[in-house]
Design a protein around this nucleic acid. Sequence first.
DNA 1: CTTGAATGGTGCGATTTCGTACTATATAAA
DNA 2: TTTATATAGTACGAAATCGCACCATTCAAG
Lengths: 148, 148
Amino acid sequence: MHEKDPRMLFEVFKEIGIIEQLSRAQLEARLPDGLIAPHFAVLNHLINRGDGAVPIDMARAFQVPKTSMTHTLKGLAAKGYVAFRDNPKDGRSKTVWLTQKGRDLRERTIRDLAPVFGDLMGEIDHEALIGILPTLVRLREVMDAARD
Amino acid sequence: MHEKDPRMLFEVFKEIGIIEQLSRAQLEARLPDGLIAPHFAVLNHLINRGDGAVPIDMARAFQVPKTSMTHTLKGLAAKGYVAFRDNPKDGRSKTVWLTQKGRDLRERTIRDLAPVFGDLMGEIDHEALIGILPTLVRLREVMDAARD
DNA sequence: CTTGAATGGTGCGATTTCGTACTATATAAA
DNA sequence: TTTATATAGTACGAAATCGCACCATTCAAG
C-alpha cells in the first residue's frame, strides 16, 4: 500500500520549508526596528531557559556559527533589548541578560501574534494539528542526532 | 481534553523552523561550488513545472522579492546551470532554461540525498510520517491564503 | 610551574536577502 | 494615435549569514 519512498520525505521538507518562510514573515511583520526572527528567537530562548546564558551555548542551541550569534547579540544589545555581564566562571566569555525592554518586546510580540494564530487554528482541524507535533519532534530529534 | 491553545501552533512552528534548518544543511552539504538551497530549488522547479519559466513567476512561486530571484538566477547562469532566452510574448522579460549541466546537478543531488533520507525513514514510524503530510499541506495552504 | 592545545569571542571579507529607485516595455484610456 | 499607468528586470546599498584568522583565556600534559 505505502511504499517506503524517500520522495515522501522530500515532499515533507518542501512543505516545511514553505511553512517556515510564511511563519517567519508573520513574525517579522510584528517586530520593530531592524529586528528579525533570530533576534526574537534569542529573547524567547532567554525567557525559556533563563537569563545569564553564554553566547557559545546559544549558538549551539540554535545551531548557527558563533560569529552569527555575536552579530545577533550585538544588534539586540545596541537597541537595549539585552545586556552583557562578565562570566564569573570563565574569563573568555560573557553572559547575556534580558532588559525590561527585552522582556516587554517578547511579551508584546506574542500577544500580537495570538490573534493570527487563533485565526489559523480556526481553519485547521485541531486534532490533526495536535497529531503532527509528536512526529515533528521525533523527526527533529532524529535529524539532530544524525548531524554527525 | 485538548484546549485550543495558540501556543500549540507556536510549538509546531518552532519544530518546523529547526527541521527546515537541518534539512537545508543536509542539502547544501551536497551542493557544489557556491550553490545554496535557493539555487537547487530553482533547478527543481524548472524540472517540475517545465523549462522556459519567467523569472517574475518564479519569484512569486517562491514568495521572494524579484530582486532576490534576479540574484539567484544570475548565480546559476554564471556557473552554467541555466541559460536565458528572450520571452517572445513579452519584450520586458526573459525565460529561463535548464542546461544539461543543470539537469545533471539536480539528478546527482537527489541521488546523493537518497541514502540520507533512507536512513531517516528507517528511524521514524512510516505511517506517522505519511500522516503528517496532509496536515502540513493544509497548514501551508491556509497560511498562503492568509497572507493578504 | 611551564608549555602546548583547546575554547570563547570578534574583526574582516564574501555572499545572500531585500527595499528603493530606475529603465524599458506593455497595456489601458482618451 | 497619444498618453499615463502598470509591469519585468536590474543596479545599488544596507543588513544578515558565515568561513577564516586572530587574540585572550582556560585546560591538560609533563
